[in-house]
Write a protein that binds this DNA or RNA. Structure first.
Lengths: 191, 191
DNA sequence: AATACAACTGACTAGACAGTCAGCCTGACT
DNA sequence: AGTCAGGCTGACTGTCTAGTCAGTTGTATT
């Protein structure tokens, strides 16, 4: 693993767990086992490092979902929707730093003045919404989903699962305990 | 308005919009029109100032909800639930700083090592969940709500509306455009 | 008028921070 | 053997930060 990749991995962890401002370049350097000047050799500024991290997160998310759906088949749209929700929750568990990062306010603040950041966030959230919308549209065709607006419903479903993941990551409520309830409610929502 | 209250008001705005670390005591002082030493006369540390802000937010939220429900009546539980969701969204609009603050990660991180912070957050979220749960329980008694777990369903509903508010505050999607859809979906969820 | 006390402040400090820069090391090519 | 370049570093800087403290003001009580 190159030193650049090591820096990126450590930075992902720290930005996710401590936030942008709370993470110091000296700490990233120490944990990566490099001199702090090395970070500035690979990344122009701290903001640049953050954008590289976010870009990796985006690529990771897109890859995970395309991989999952490329080797799975579903008997109908409703089933596909349920599997999508389940996979989102699964991913939030196995890739917690990604979701911690996305649940911080900094990236959205940065997106206001940085177009690249905005395109990254849009790619991520479009990926999420598209997956639910796709399942709903298929469900309407095969009759397993009722007459609702697929896009808007997909947004509400994303809000729900994303909210649950956030609550879990904030140690407020446990996502696992809500799993069955959530599936039932989502199913009834789109019937 | 006393200088102490002025400091609290400015601090609420800045902690909500910039976060804990990004907000400097000098800026709070300048905007409040006091010397920075004055802040430390009223509040022992920066963390202490933050906790005072959060305490105010908690009191504000509890007050707003108790006031709203004390002068409203509903013909059944389902209607009460719908009104609760609507009022949550309304409050998130009129008291945006409160919700920006609650959507930051810092308070939850602080809660891990600070019991007072934890009790404040618990009071806030219990208030939210109780309101939805209360409506669901009433609805089950009058038959307007189906056979579901009121507590868990309340948690899912809170996740949904809280998620939508967060998306709106992050400039990702507009809560207003989703209002009708949301109400329909929540209604169907609990039938 | 003297006392007492709370509210407030200007001037300060020690530490942390992002970012810079001149130069070192190592391996590849000539 | 000499040259070159990419990767890397130690030592540094100017700026910003939370927090301190000795001392001033205003006001109420005696």
């Amino acid at each position: 693993m190159s030193k650049k990749d090591e820096i990126l991995e450590i930075a992902t962890f720290l930005f996710a767990n401590k936030g942008f401002k709370e993470t110091s370049m000296v700490e990233v350097a120490k944990r990566s086992g490099v001199a702090s000047a090395t970070i500035f050799y690979h990344f122009k500024t701290k903001e640049d490092l953050f954008l590289s991290v976010l870009n990796n997160v985006k690529n990771g998310i897109l890859e995970e979902f395309s991989h999952y759906f490329s080797e799975k088949t579903f008997s109908n749209g409703a089933e596909r929707l349920e599997a999508s929700v389940a996979f989102y929750l699964y991913l939030a568990g196995t890739r917690q730093p990604w979701f911690l990062l996305l649940h911080r306010y900094y990236p959205y603040k940065l997106a206001e003045k940085n177009d690249f950041c905005r395109t990254l966030l849009e790619a991520i959230y479009n990926c999420f919404v598209d997956i639910f919308e796709n399942a709903l549209v298929r469900g309407q065709k095969d009759g397993s989903v009722g007459d609702i607006s697929p896009r808007k419903t997909a947004l509400v479903i994303l809000s729900t699962v994303d909210g649950i993941v956030r609550f879990k990551n904030c140690n407020l409520y446990d996502a696992g305990a809500l799993y069955n309830e959530l599936m039932g409610l989502v199913g009834r929502m789109v019937k």
